[in-house]
């Protein structure tokens, strides 16, 4: 499956991955290889096979509803780039 450069840029932007202009064609062919693999898999006849969401046959473990966590704010904020008044500070975001 062929991708254009614009699609590559778009995917990169959605994933917040920076791609150097010199890497675009290399990234594009890597992505195309993955899509090629998907296309091959799609060609397999899967009639009667239930779609799988997870590779293992495991089912979820559920926990009882109880508060088990203590406040560790000081420890967490000690390794945060910026914190003030109990809040984490990040570059200004406006909707």
């Amino acid at each position: 499956m062929a991708l254009d450069n614009e699609t590559v840029h778009n995917i990169a932007r959605l994933a917040r991955i920076e791609i150097d202009p010199s890497e675009v064609s290399q990234t594009r062919s890597a992505l195309e290889n993955i899509l090629e693999l998907v296309a091959q898999m799609e060609a397999v006849d899967t009639t009667g096979i239930e779609p799988m969401t997870h590779p293992f046959d495991a089912t979820m473990r559920l926990r009882a509803d109880a508060v088990t966590e203590a406040n560790q704010r000081d420890k967490f904020q000690a390794i945060a780039p910026k914190a003030e008044g109990g809040l984490y500070l990040v570059p200004k975001v406006i909707d």
Binding site: R61, R63, Q72, F76
Partner: peptide, 25 residues
Amino acid sequence: EPNTQASAVDIALPGVLPVMNLEAA
């Protein structure tokens, strides 16, 4: 108080795993 009820899972520290609450289900 801000961030006093935010654990390692809630703030997404690396290596943590979510465990589903039965009562929510």
